[in-house]
Simulated scan of single mutants.
Amino acid sequence: MRRTLRARICLPALLALTTVGLGSATAAADTAGAGGNPHPGITALPAQYSLHTALERDLGDRSAGSYLDAESGELVVTVTDAEAAEEVRATGARAELVERSMAQLRAAMDTLESRARITGTSWGIDPSANKVAVEADSTVSAASMAKLRSVAVPLGDAVSIKRVPGAFKKEVAGGDAIYGGGYRCSAAFNVSDGTARYLLTAGHCTNAASIWSATSGGPEIGTRTGTSFPTNDYGIVRYTDGSQPAGDVDLYNGSHQDITAAADAIVGQSIRKSGSTTGLTSGTVTAVDVTVNYGDGPVHDLVRTTACSAGGDSGGAHFAGSTALGIHSGSAGCTGSSGSALHQPVKEALAAYGVAVY
């Protein structure tokens, strides 16, 4: 990590929110926002975040999720009947009739959960394909792959399986960022409950220590007040050094992005990840409702993206413009400019701790 960032972290404005991905070869910082990925994704508009959330809530099982069309940028809402399609069109969004409902896709994931919980695998919903997208990393043996495929066969084309390089893992490492319990992580977003200020990071980081510093062996900057891992992957640290840190994210080019809102990511949208190892990288959201089977237990309801990350990026920020989206959890690494980074949706963590971005 850059010495300039270390100096900034030591200031009362602590981490202008460093964030990064996990477990991959170091990626070059990307300040252009496209990350070099073949499909850089679509910029999501504030109105699309709101509509996406409202329609999925109102339609319930009559929808199998939403995504952004890669060509037009339209919000596409999948539906299972004509009446639901009319409701979607009335809002100005595009309706797409699909074969499988959200309940059917989740039933397929339940089958995988009960019969194929294999370390090194992950699965989540890709609404653009109306399928459960399964990934198996390089540590999954031939015998385990055979078992995974045998479980998937009765599920038919509701499930797709692909191999990914690397190994799904949480990404903590030695170096610069936030330190606790002998580990290095990254901070995601500064938040407030109206009176006190906190930072959000990964739960597998806050599980490791209650006292956190901005430099290795440095003075305390904050104390853990909450942690959740596995099942979830978020934790919260209250500032105890009297600082009033800004609510922004480090772009690793001498500038920072102010964060003013939080939302749930939409498949097909572009995102950026900021972290203490790989700096700023970017990618596209490819799946939601993702379960990843780490060696020490599964984590559910994550978001999968193509952003690159590496060890030490755990807890970093996933965001789009001024909107906070997620807290970096882990990855199977990065091939070229395309990774498989996973983030914990930030809105769940905000609700759990009764805090807000500012």
Rank of each mutant, 00 (worst) to 15 (best):
A93W: 04
E96L: 14
A90P: 07
A107Q: 11
V88K: 00
A136S: 09
L68W: 02
Q104V: 10
L105A: 08
E83I: 12
T91G: 04
R149K: 13
K147R: 15
R62H: 11
V153K: 14
T111M: 10
V134Y: 05
A146N: 13
A85S: 14
P127D: 07
V79D: 05
L155P: 09
R94P: 06
A142W: 06
R62F: 03
R100T: 10
E96N: 07
E113C: 13
E71I: 12
A136R: 10
S63V: 00
S141Y: 03
A108V: 12
V77F: 03
E71H: 13
A93M: 06
M109R: 13
V151I: 09
L112G: 01
L97N: 02
K147A: 10
S101C: 08
A146I: 00
S101E: 10
I125E: 03
S141I: 09
R62T: 07
R94V: 14
S66K: 01
G120N: 12
L148I: 05
W123A: 07
T91Q: 06
A143S: 12
L68I: 09
G124D: 10
T78P: 03
L105C: 07
R89A: 13
S144T: 11
L68K: 11
V79Q: 04
E113G: 12
D126Y: 04
S101N: 08
A146P: 01
A93Q: 00
T119R: 14
V88G: 01
S150C: 08
A136W: 04
E86F: 00
T121V: 14
L148G: 08
Q104P: 03
A82I: 11
D81V: 05
V140N: 00
G120P: 10
G124E: 08
L97H: 08
E71T: 14
N130R: 09
A108I: 06
R115Y: 13
L68E: 05
L75K: 06
S150N: 11
R62W: 00
L68C: 02
E71R: 14
L105E: 03
A152H: 06
D81S: 05
S66G: 03
Y67E: 00
A142D: 08
T121N: 09
V140F: 00
M145V: 01
W123G: 10
L148P: 09
D110N: 11
V77E: 07
M102R: 14
A116E: 08
K131R: 15
W123P: 12
G92D: 08
V153G: 13
L155A: 05
Q104C: 02
K147V: 08
R94H: 10
D126M: 09
R115Q: 15
V140P: 02
E135I: 13
A108M: 05
V140T: 00
R106K: 14
S63E: 01
E99A: 14
E87K: 14
E83N: 13
L155E: 01
G73I: 01
A136G: 07
E71D: 14
N130G: 11
T91K: 07
T80N: 05
T80C: 05
